[in-house]
Design a protein around this nucleic acid. Structure first.
Length: 569
RNA sequence: GCGCCCAUAGUUCAAUGGAUAGAACGUAGCUUUGCGGAAGCUAUAAUGUAGGUUCGAUUCCUACUGGGCGCACCA
């Protein structure tokens, strides 16, 4: 299906070319906020006015007169200093409902990026540490982006660049050898490992020499020491099992989990390439660095003076691996904003090395801060993601029990999961923030207002109507939507594919959330103002379609955000 | 010190350079005869300061104020 906005843009372009000849211009489609300003609006007259030295209002009037309207547009008006406002015909909106219903779960997707490949890195928790709430952002945002990319036609490769390597492991291995035991760790893996990690940092405060012991253990690991190797592998496996439990609850999945260690043997080639191309040079203390022209950024550190590799080295190896393996058109890293400098540096180095032509995008988000306690893995102060998930489901369960005690226990639990987890995901996805997010339980798990349950409730209510509609054929109605509330809702529905494209291009899931919330609000307005089942038969048919099309839009939209919809709640 | 990001109702958040800045929570009222009141309706209140660019600025530019983050052997 072609997007309506593209069709309008095309119409305007044709008319401008015909009326004003060969000049350069760009048609951009706006969604006016006021109903009086139509459903789609174009402001090309301002640009033309300037280029032609004419009044933009006059140009808009000419265009309004000359444009050849297809039957799905009822009229075009020019307004204000030169806006062209298009009004979609109610007949078209009414007919369109059936298209939405027929497309079903495909409605909303498009082929804008067909034939292209995107590789994404999301989640990347650190092995041997529990996932904290802050990991939620990368995981949830990344999961939504993956689904959105897929919906606009990309082939999506979902990678999880696990933090399974580095000096921290040396420290952990040292701690385990000194204070740990296989038994206790086996019983309760992650908490015990965290304890050891915390213990190490406590002891370092008394004896700084431990830092070196930690580094030495990592060096041994990197050098292939069989005992450390074995220990490391064991810890990674235990962690992966733990993470998988959380991913299952969140319903996110990956195609690959290529941790940092995966690139261990792939860095040599990058380092040689950089030296050969003169991009890497020796810096202070014998370290290998990549300096930038005009000191645009601080130099990027490639190798420590002791010869060990760093984060940036592995990132370069990863980029090369992605390029060589999948030849992607786009690479996306979903990581918090504190790492922007690192990404700018390593993207620039990748450009200098000509590793890939694909744009590297750092989708950044604010860090999570906490009103009461400062979070620090080293000190063991951390709000566990698992706790948050439990609390979310608990709160939702309490609400379900209060609102709908008649559901079976099994249903209640299922609904509580959908509502609780959904609320949490929605809280993260509905805002577009690069500033820090202050974590509060109430905000994260809000079940009212602009929240997932609000949308889920609309869906459940609409489904309840559809269950009661009976067997009659409701395809044949001649009624054309006329009431303001039903039209307001119907006008919004064809926009889903446009919104998804925009959101995918801008890497902004919140655009979808905002749109869905508006659909839900308008549905509730319609629901309160007009009756469906008790309406006259011909009206009833059209309204049932409206209700069904709305459920399709809400279900599909929420699915892109990774949020499920309950039939009853 | 240098660099990056952010600043919108009491609070939490929206707004692709467009028309009257939009919600939610809160507060004050209202809606039972109609499909699920987890709802709807009404009222309330905001673009940090000073300039600039533009037909038009919350959005772009400059300075200031206030917050966050980062800046060589962590990731």
């Amino acid at each position: 299906m072609n997007l309506l906005k593209d069709k309008i843009a095309f119409l305007v372009e044709e008319t401008v070319k015909k009326e004003f000849g060969d000049i350069e211009f760009q048609v951009k489609i706006d969604y006016p906020s006021a109903d009086a300003h139509g459903d789609y609006s174009v402001n090309v007259a301002f640009e033309l006015g300037k280029k032609l030295g004419k009044a933009s209002r006059a140009i808009a009037e000419t265009l309004a007169q000359k444009i050849k309207l297809p039957d799905w547009i009822s009229r075009v008006e020019c307004a204000g200093p030169g806006f062209l406002n298009f009004f979609i015909a109610p007949q078209f909106l009414t007919d369109f409902l059936q298209e939405v219903i027929d497309e079903g779960e495909k409605f909303g997707s498009s082929k804008i990026a067909a034939g292209k490949t995107v590789v994404t890195d999301t989640s990347h928790p650190n092995v041997a540490k529990p996932m904290g709430v802050h990991h939620l952002l990368s995981t949830i945002i990344g999961c939504a982006l993956n689904k959105m990319f897929n919906a606009v036609g990309y082939k999506v490769i979902r990678d999880n660049y696990l933090g399974d390597y580095g000096t921290q492991f040396g420290k952990l291995i040292y701690a385990y050898k000194t204070w740990g035991s296989e038994e206790t760790v086996k019983k309760n893996p992650i908490p015990e490992l965290l304890k050891l990690y915390v213990k190490f940092h406590d002891e370092v405060e008394k004896d700084v020499a431990l830092e070196d012991r930690g580094r030495a253990e990592f060096k041994k690991l990197e050098g292939g020491d069989s005992e450390n190797r074995k220990l490391w592998k064991w810890i990674v496996d235990l962690s992966l099992q733990e993470f998988q439990g959380i991913y299952d609850r969140l319903d996110v999945s990956f195609d690959y989990i290529h941790g940092e260690s995966f690139y261990e043997d792939k860095m040599r080639a990058i380092i040689d390439m950089g030296i050969k191309k003169g991009v890497f040079v020796t810096g202070e203390g014998g370290a290998l660095i990549a300096p930038f022209e005009n000191e645009k950024y601080p130099p990027c550190l490639i190798k420590k003076s002791d010869g060990a590799t760093l984060y940036a080295t592995r990132d370069l190896a990863r980029t090369k691996y992605w390029e060589d393996t999948w030849h992607p058109d786009l690479m996306v890293m979903v990581v918090d904003v504190a790492q922007s400098l690192h990404f700018q540096q390593f993207f620039e180095v990748a450009r200098m090395l000509k590793i890939t032509k694909a744009p590297n995008i750092h989708v950044s988000f604010g860090r999570m801060s906490f009103p009461e306690k400062r979070m620090s893995t080293r000190k063991g102060n951390i709000i566990l993601l698992e706790e948050v998930l439990d609390e979310a489901e608990e709160r939702a369960l309490k609400l379900v029990e209060e609102k709908n005690p008649d559901l079976s226990e099994k249903q209640k639990k299922a609904v509580a999961r959908q509502v609780g987890i959904g609320a949490m995901k929605y809280a993260v996805l509905s805002q577009n923030r690069t500033t820090d997010i202050t974590f509060t339980w109430d905000k994260m798990l809000s079940l009212e207002g602009n929240s997932a349950p609000y949308l889920q409730y609309v869906y459940a209510r609409a489904r309840a109507i559809l269950r009661k509609r009976g067997e009659e054929n409701f395809r044949g109605g001649k009624y054309i939507l006329t009431e303001p509330q039903e039209l307001a809702l119907a006008k919004l529905l064809p926009k889903l594919p446009e919104v998804v494209v925009h959101a995918a291009q801008e890497f902004k899931p919140n655009l979808i959330a905002n749109y869905l919330f508006e659909v839900a609000q308008r549905f509730n307005g319609f629901y309160a103002a007009q009756e469906v089942l008790k309406a006259k038969p011909e009206i009833r048919a059209a309204r049932l379609k409206l209700v069904e099309a709305a459920t399709v839009v809400i279900k599909n939209g929420l699915k892109l955000l990774g949020i499920e919809v309950p039939e009853e709640m």
